[in-house]
């Protein structure tokens, strides 16, 4: 996946100054401990994960490597709904995340003036507090008889959600709606910050120039602001989509049995059912799917500087 590497390294590769070319061992010495750690505890586990998926047996009698690939079609045929659902939920959360994050990021970067720093603090601070507790707070916010559920009922929005099969039984909690709202919420800072970084670099004179050259507000956005913010959009969508796909905290705490995501399946196969090969196979499938999607996306978006 050269494009994935380029996505990360683009900035560095071009910015690397021509320095001290003689003392070549220095960068390797700097890299060694960190890369060794990643090799041992990121790369090696991928090998053992692959190996585990091709073993047969059980935790009590031990596993034997048989190289039986049939576990993959089995896992796929059994759990494809959860896999697809995870991708769907993650894509939805990414889409709405972008929709919500963009105006806030743009406002902070270009319009907030002296409020900029305060707003930035308010965006970052929740990100540093417990993910789980904030998700639990959504149970309170969306609970029956609460302000939000009241509002949905009065405006009839609840009927729309029911019609879209996003909720059932007239309650907001334990539904697709709650899971996707939670996912959108939880990964929003990951969307806002890269967008903010990209939009903050935007020289306001570009917008003035566009207006001067007869562009409407929308055309200015479409032809100037949006293209220039693309690196932020790509980084933000990736940082939202990837963790959201594997997440199961939201689906577990805010959903129901019909909203089970793939992470939940892998978790329970590993830790409850103890079917390691099947679990490892699913895990591997998830990884391949994500990496493929990310590689395609990065290539398509054609941005060099991601991180």
């Amino acid at each position: 996946m050269p494009s994935v590497g380029a996505a990360l390294g683009g900035g560095g590769a071009t910015a690397a100054p021509a320095q001290r070319p003689r003392r070549n061992w220095v960068p390797y010495a700097l890299l060694l401990p960190g890369l060794l750690w990643l090799a041992l505890f990121y790369a090696t586990p991928m090998v053992t994960l692959g190996s585990q998926s091709l073993q047969e047996g059980n935790v009590y009698d031990g596993f034997v490597f048989t190289g039986n690939l049939s576990v993959y079609p089995q896992a796929l045929s059994e759990y494809w709904p959860q896999l697809l659902r995870s991708l769907g939920y993650a894509a939805t959360a990414t889409f709405f995340g972008l929709l919500l994050a963009y105006p806030l990021a743009y406002f902070m970067a270009q319009k907030a003036g002296r409020w900029k720093n305060i707003m930035l603090i308010l965006v970052i601070a929740p990100f540093f507090t417990s993910f789980l507790i904030r998700t639990l707070a959504w149970r309170i916010i969306l609970s029956d008889g609460g302000v939000v559920s009241d509002f949905f009922e009065r405006t009839g929005l609840i009927n729309l959600l029911e019609w879209l099969t996003l909720t059932t039984g007239g309650t907001l909690l334990n539904s697709k709606f709650a899971v996707m709202a939670g996912l959108t919420y939880n990964f929003l800072p990951f969307m806002i910050l890269p967008l903010y970084a990209a939009l903050e670099r935007l020289d306001p004179r570009y917008m003035e120039a566009a207006r001067d050259l007869y562009a409407s507000g929308w055309q200015t956005f479409r032809h100037v602001i949006w293209p220039l913010s693309l690196p932020g959009v790509v980084a933000g969508t990736l940082l939202t989509f990837i963790p959201a796909t594997g997440d199961y905290i939201n689906s577990r705490l805010l959903g129901n049995t019909q909203t089970v995501m793939i992470g939940q399946v892998i978790d329970s196969l590993f830790l409850r059912v103890l079917d390691y090969p099947q679990a490892a196979a699913l895990s591997f499938i998830l990884l391949i799917m994500i990496v493929t999607l990310v590689a395609l996306y990065v290539r398509r978006a054609g941005t060099e500087e991601l991180v």
Binding site: P243, G246, D247, V307
Partner: peptide, 16 residues
């Protein structure tokens, strides 16, 4: 090196 640094960020937590 860039790839090895990027991969953990592109890998869902459940896989890691």
């Amino acid at each position: 090196t860039n790839l090895l640094i990027f991969m953990p960020m592109a890998t869902p937590e459940v896989v890691m």
